[in-house]
Design a protein around this nucleic acid. Structure first.
Lengths: 232, 232
DNA sequence: TTAAGGTCTTGATATTTATCAAGGAGAGGG
DNA sequence: CCCTCTCCTTGATAAATATCAAGACCTTAA
């Protein structure tokens, strides 16, 4: 890994409170690499050799069973994925591919586990990150189990809208096919769900969405911080 | 907490490798309590005051949104719940109530976080437990997202069957209403799903299920270790 | 023994979601 | 400029799931 990349990595929450010597040891065995879009990074069932950290770009987590495939989540900077598999020294439960050209940090699992034992501050950062991931999945699970497709879309739009500054407009961060999969529906159904939201002030122009009537959107969506807030 | 209960708790994986003095300090502030069935233990949205460990009995995790309610999981001995909220010092994402008369260990969150910092072995046990919880939810999420209702039931039956010794018979560990909710369907639909499975050798007698044709069950269910194995 | 209250099942129907088939709109390449 | 490709949309239909209503079955208690 190049020395010029170090400060960028050091600034990540996961590493910022770590002892210098442990950080250096970790970086010596790590790779910061740039990948083209749509490249498969890991496949479910493989042994967890590395911890992945998305530094730039974005990565799609997905899973397959029977003939079906579904997106399980999107990881954007700065997020980790498959931390649990790394810590347990187990196989990946999800596959991952780049959604865009992405800069990704790879750290060998073994060294992560070692650093966890040696550095209490790092251990603390790791467990907080893992707890956040856990709560993220629980929220996705609740979203899917307690809401209809239209409600999921409405709440997702409100979330993106907030993340992007609540200006009345938002950009979908991925194509509609992927969004549909993330939301647990077919692309056809996503189209129809957008039509259903039209009376609530949702205007679609490509990947730009305008929310013209936030109040009625919220009445319909009934956003719930215990599902939709990513910060808590 | 009574001294006679200590060995039982000490044997739990979470505590077995902890230093004696840290264990004692933790136990001094903890409660081992027995609760009647159907008692609400925590409510989503409340601040995480305690870590809960199910020592005997079983606990149902559930969540609400809009008017809907759904079971999110069942915790049986020896399992923890809401570990992530405790570590993050955040609010619970799920509610919990006893399913049966249950013996439960309550440890104040603050002391858990303190012990995590002081005892590296405990930190290791905690992170492994949390990673297991994470992977458990991911599996539930995959189950719901990638399978139909009948497939979910079939795979659940195969799982219970295995857990209970693979003798051709199995006992449902909860009433059908709860099972339906865990599987993400209505009780009516569960009934129909059992009927759909009849041609595959599934005979229902109250909460006793006989699997008379495992081969065709497996052909239908297509069990997937990356969803159904609880050990990995 | 009967009445009352569960849980579970069944049938009829409605709603939601998926599938299949076709067409439109836009981007990039020749 | 037009072709071709991909992505998205729309319509028609099918399948999956939920809802509503009723009844069966079981347990418990008077």
């Amino acid at each position: 890994m190049r020395a010029s990349d170090l400060p960028q990595v050091r600034a990540l929450r996961l590493f910022s409170s770590m002892e210098e010597k442990h950080f250096e040891a970790l970086m010596e065995v790590s790779y910061l690499q740039t990948f083209p879009p749509q490249l498969d990074l890991i496949a479910e069932g493989d042994l967890a050799d590395f911890l992945y950290i998305v530094v730039e770009g974005s990565v799609e987590l997905y899973a397959r069973s029977n003939g079906r495939e579904s997106a399980m989540g999107l990881v954007r900077p700065v997020g980790t994925f498959i931390l649990a598999a790394v810590l347990k020294d187990a196989v990946y439960l999800m596959s991952a591919r780049t959604a865009q050209r992405s800069k990704i940090l790879l750290i060998p699992s073994q060294n992560i586990r070692q650093a966890f034992q040696q550095d209490a501050e790092f251990a603390r950062a790791i467990v907080l990150e893992l707890a956040s991931c856990y709560r993220g999945v629980v929220k996705e699970y609740k979203d899917l189990k307690l809401r209809t497709a239209v409600e999921r879309l409405a709440n997702r739009l409100l979330r993106y809208h907030n993340d992007q500054g609540a200006s009345g407009k938002l950009e979908l961060p991925h194509d509609k096919r992927t969004l549909a999969s993330v939301l647990g529906m077919t692309p056809e159904n996503l189209s129809r769900a957008f039509n259903t939201l039209k009376p609530y002030g949702v205007e679609v122009d490509g990947s730009t969405i305008t929310l013209a009537d936030l109040k009625s959107m919220k009445t319909l969506a009934k956003p719930n911080p215990l599902i939709d807030d990513r910060s808590t």
